[in-house]
Design a protein around this nucleic acid. Structure first.
Lengths: 232, 232
DNA sequence: AACAGATGAAGCAAATACTTATCATCGACG
DNA sequence: CGTCGATGATAAGTATTTGCTTCATCTGTT
């Protein structure tokens, strides 16, 4: 599992990322201050550092420079910079100082994941794609983004695929609609709508799971949904 | 006879090696600059690349990284690095970047030959020049750089050819646009445009694969593209 | 059984993503 | 230099996905 350290004083963002990146097999640690950050770098030896430009004490550029200059074990630590404004100058400075990539805030969680994978792939051969155990005739190959039901390849949309992956990574866990919405879209989307229900419905349909005794996705009445794992 | 390419600006060394290695049934080519080097890689398709760390334009590490990241065809080309100073850090960095071995200058010619043999043996064991299996009427002969569709030779551009090779090396794998861009154009290619789409479109056209139920390249909506392998 | 809240599913509309024609650019080559 | 082919950028045109609404159906409770 990839260890990722975020140095950012935005607590909320940190918590969100901890949740969101979890299912991409990344363990996220958050440091609210640079000093705490340096401490954690030594402690957890992260595979990737995500750095906010705006920080108390010293700014992200400064930190980036320091890390690169120390050229110890961490001199090559991949760094992804978060900048408040998508200014080109920022970008250039950042990259010159040795950041491996940058991402303007606010960003799409998916975009973040894509960039993280990119950087990790570059820095080492990225085997970070976590394997998902086949359950009850349903297999997911994340490196190929391929889903097979009883041997047949399924054609899933992005959302459907992500929902399925989420479910299968936590079989038997009951997700509330809120939770699913948050994990899938990254935003605290206040659930006025029934988007999740629709999505589940569509996924069920493709999984041929529309009978009353579901093979895969069980409705937990009044709570949410559960992907049923191995029956014992 | 093994083809060996040396990228080094030391002309004298080059001439020496041409003479010396000839005896061991190796044909040596010398490129004095990286750009010349890349040119020759394409032209003579060497079995081994010997790379000096100190070079004009860009250093050996950079070249090594580029080759590894870049083309699908030469991504596996064995590389031997020559470093001016036998520093451990250099070694590590070099190997991490994908060099197969390194040799500090100055070196004993015999030592060089030994290492060359070592690398070549390793890579031939690996069957490193991967053959591409014909799929569904499409054959690629990498040694001839020839592509046949249902028996007819296709006329592909460099990019089209590399894209096809990449696809066919990983049938059924879904590539994102990022991934394709990175593999085809080198590290850190940025996606401002629909360049990949255009390329895919052109390749599809040459493959006569423009129907809605693609024979070869499938669009994975929201994700990227997949070259479909054998259907079962 | 009747009720109120919750869920499933179909259909529509808007957002989002893809295709491709066309033009611009660049580099190789004569 | 000028031409040609390859590749990148742009944008108009399509296609697909996704979210929302609606209504039928279901569930748990009284």
């Amino acid at each position: 599992m990839k260890q990722i350290l975020i140095i950012d004083d935005d607590e909320k963002l940190g918590k969100l990322l901890i949740q969101y990146l979890e299912r991409y097999d990344m363990k996220v640690h958050v440091a609210l201050t640079p000093s705490k950050g340096f401490e954690l770098i030594k402690k957890i030896k992260p595979d990737l550092l995500i750095l906010d430009v705006m920080l108390p004490e010293k700014d992200g550029f400064e930190i980036c420079r320091e890390i690169r200059a120390k050229s110890s074990i961490y001199g090559q630590l991949p760094i992804l910079m978060l900048t408040a404004h998508a200014e080109v100058t920022d970008r250039i400075v950042g990259l010159e100082l040795g950041a491996d990539d940058y991402l303007p805030k606010p960003f799409e969680p998916r975009e973040l994941v894509a960039r993280i994978h990119n950087i990790l792939r570059r820095s080492s051969d990225d085997n970070s794609v976590r394997e998902i155990k086949p359950i009850n005739g349903l297999e997911v190959d994340m490196s190929r983004r391929e889903v097979k039901l009883d041997g047949d390849v399924l054609d899933l949309t992005t959302m459907e695929y992500e929902l399925l992956v989420l479910f299968m990574q936590f079989p038997n866990k009951t997700f509330t609609r809120d939770e699913l919405m948050n994990r899938l879209r990254g935003i605290d989307a206040e659930l006025f709508s029934r988007a999740v229900d629709t999505l589940v419905s569509r996924l069920r349909h493709k999984l041929k799971d529309t009978s009353k005794t579901p093979r895969f996705i069980k409705t937990v009445w009044g709570r949410g949904y559960t992907f049923v794992g191995e029956q014992i």
